[in-house]
Every structure is written in C-alpha cells, then in structure tokens.
Design a protein around this nucleic acid. Structure first.
Lengths: 121, 121
DNA sequence: CGCTTATATAAGGCTCTCCTGATATAAAGA
DNA sequence: TCTTTATATCAGGAGAGCCTTATATAAGCG
C-alpha cells in the first residue's frame, strides 16, 4: 500500500489530524472517530495498524495505554512528490523572500506592531 | 473517490509526472505507460478518465487527438491539507526568509557568481 | 465512401480493502 | 486471584478498483 493510499481513507486522515495536536492514546482517538464515523473499535484499531505499519505514526506503551504520535516521514515524501507540481500554483521562492522582506521592513517602519489585527486588552 | 485515492495508483501518478513536462496527447502518455507498466490501452484510457473526472487534468481535442494537461486544483488541496503537518519537518518561514537573505548577501559580496559549481567553458 | 488511426466505453472477473462480531492479550484494581 | 479496562487480532463477507477482451465513436485519408 502506497502512502497516498494510506491517506485515501477519511478515518485515517482524521486520526492524523487529531494527532497533529499532539500525542494521544488509542482510546481517545477511537472515541472521537467512532462518534464521527460510526465505526467499531476494531475498525479504528485496524486503521491505527495501517498508519503504524506505513510509518505515519509512532506508538509507545504506558501501562495498558498505547500513545500514538505523528511520524512525519511519509508525509514528507508526499510533500516531496508534490514539489514537482508546485510551480503550477506557487510563486517562485525568490519572490516569496522579497515579499517577506518587504513585510519585515514595513513592520519596522510602523514601530514593531504585531502582524495581525489583535489588540492587547 | 478522494484526491488521495486518485494519487494512490502508480500509473496515475506516472501520468501526472509525464504531464508535468507539459501538455501531451493520450497516445504518447499511453505508449510510455504501457511500456513501463505492461498494461493495455483501455487500462490507460480508464486511468485518464479518473484523472479527468477528479479534476487533475484538462483535455482538449485536436482532430482525433486528445491533449491532456495538468490541472493543479486537487494537488493544491492536498498541499493545503499537508500544510497542517509541515511544522513537523519544515523550519518556520521567518527562518527561511533569513536564510535566503543571507544567501543573497553572500553572493553579492562574492561578486555575482552563479549559485552552483558550474564554470563557463 | 471504405479503411485506418486515435481514443473511449462496456462487460465481466479477480483481488484487495474495510467492515463487523467474536476473541485474545495484558495491565490494573478489588 | 478474579474482574474490568484498554487495545489488538482473527475470520469472514460486501463492495470497490483495476485489469482484460471486445466493441463503439469519430476524424483523417486514399
């Protein structure tokens, strides 16, 4: 099964999204996913197995719990594959650097205001 | 079928890679892919259909030919989804801008040499 | 107009994925 | 130790995806 196939399943994508917030036990992931997708505990466990065996997650045991976390390896590979197509929509990197520099200069001239519109109460 | 499932197939990924070099007729794509994967012409045509119907390619007819080209829409969506995980491996953008600026400064001091090691013969 | 070339569609079969219900494993607690 | 909790594995079935062969469509050409 290719990394893209692993991400083809909506349950597995959701699990990774949940893990993006940080390490979580299988049970917590399972509860959320079962509620959202209406599938059984074994189904969730099998999805976790696929993610594990394809390198998308790491696991560590703490007592009877299994704590899952994102392992970025395969996601990086996908990102690398996408790189060959990014020129179809992304501006060249040089322009991006210019943009960033411009943003910094403007902020400096305005007197170190924060980036967004929030104000400190 | 989700965009990730579309990219799950190696034949479809290869077709997109070939199209990254520019617009090509179905026949040319078919020849390459048939050679590399040993599948039939209808099989290739069916893969092209999947790519079309999921927005990965555009097609235009020229006589009896069908010219396919990359349509970046779904690839961008995938890129956007990946963005939520990029912090697991990519440096923050501010650091990148600094890096780029440093590179430019160094080049300026060296007297506008090219980036790589090539020398003009 | 018939023949050839380029591409798509149709029908059917095999395989693989994903699910469920039942069960195994192993730590925790009474 | 017996029971409960947390998680994984097993076995089997439904459905989807991808392939093949056969055929349709439609433009180009003699």
């Amino acid at each position: 099964m290719h990394a893209f196939d692993v991400l083809g399943d909506p349950v597995r994508r959701r699990i990774l999204e949940l893990l993006a917030a940080g390490e979580q036990p299988a049970g917590a992931l399972g509860e959320t996913v079962r509620r959202e997708f209406g599938i059984s505990q074994p189904a969730v466990s099998q999805h976790l197995k696929v993610l594990r065996e394809h390198g998308f997650t790491t696991v560590r045991a703490v007592g009877t719990r299994r704590l899952y976390a994102v392992d970025p390896g395969p996601l990086r590979e996908i990102d690398a594959w996408l790189a060959g197509f990014r020129r179809f929509w992304a501006p060249p990197l040089a322009a991006l650097a210019t943009e960033l520099a411009r943003g910094r200069r403007e902020r400096r001239l305005r007197g170190n205001e924060p980036d967004d519109e929030r104000t400190n109460p």
